[in-house]
């Protein structure tokens, strides 16, 4: 007895009408061709698996939404979807080059996370607070110049304009402010770093 093969078109039509088994038959019938086609482009089993899955997700959605154009043949249509997804994959990978870290060279030895961790940021804020307290101990004129220069980021020209003293005087006050800060730090054995 000759077994009649149900055509793809019939299976697709049955699937659209709600026969879920038809999809199983279609996948079973074409999975090897589609999978091999994808693998021949990407040469990676995991990526092939992903693209294969995405291909059929697209197929399922298109069929269920009634957007499938029955003029074309089923397999070439699926192949075209797979082909487009392979292109998408390569485009995405070019934009975001991946580093697989499988060789001896460790990428993390040359790049580091520049942001501070919780401990370091705590230490940083403590140090900044200590420095602030030390600055408060300075004579008023030196303190004023130091704050304008270091915290307000003003130039010595701007400082001299604002305080009404010459640039040289402002420079001198800054110099003495730093000398005095160092003295206090040395005298009290203050450790400002970890």
């Amino acid at each position: 007895m000759k077994r009649e093969l149900i055509t793809d078109a019939v299976l697709v039509s049955n699937y659209i009408k709600g026969d879920e088994n038809s999809l199983g038959t279609l996948i079973k019938r074409h999975k090897q061709k589609i999978y091999s086609f994808i693998y021949s482009k990407v040469y990676d089993r995991d990526i092939t698996e992903d693209v294969f899955q995405d291909t059929f997700i697209k197929v399922i959605r298109t069929l269920k939404l009634g957007k499938y154009n029955e003029e074309g043949k089923f397999l070439p249509w699926v192949m075209r979807i797979a082909h487009n997804l392979v292109i998408d994959h390569f485009r995405k990978n070019n934009r975001m080059p991946k580093f697989d870290n499988s060789t001896d060279f460790d990428i993390f030895s040359v790049i580091s996370d520049s942001s501070l961790n919780a401990e370091k940021s705590l230490i940083k804020s403590q140090v900044e607070e200590d420095v602030r307290r030390l600055i408060e101990e300075l004579p008023e004129d030196q303190k004023q110049v130091l704050i304008m220069r270091m915290y307000n980021d003003m130039s010595f020209k701007e400082i001299s304009d604002k305080t009404g003293v010459s640039i040289n005087t402002a420079l001198g006050r800054m110099r003495y402010a730093l000398i005095n800060l160092r003295k206090v730090i040395d005298k009290h054995h203050i450790v400002l770093t970890n």
Partner: peptide
């Protein structure tokens, strides 16, 4: 060796299809 998708992938697709309704 035959290049074909893992069984889990096929099962996922069949389950996805059953779960998806329009």
């Amino acid at each position: 060796e035959t290049l074909q998708p893992r069984e889990e992938t096929v099962n996922f697709l069949l389950n996805y299809s059953q779960a998806l309704s329009v």
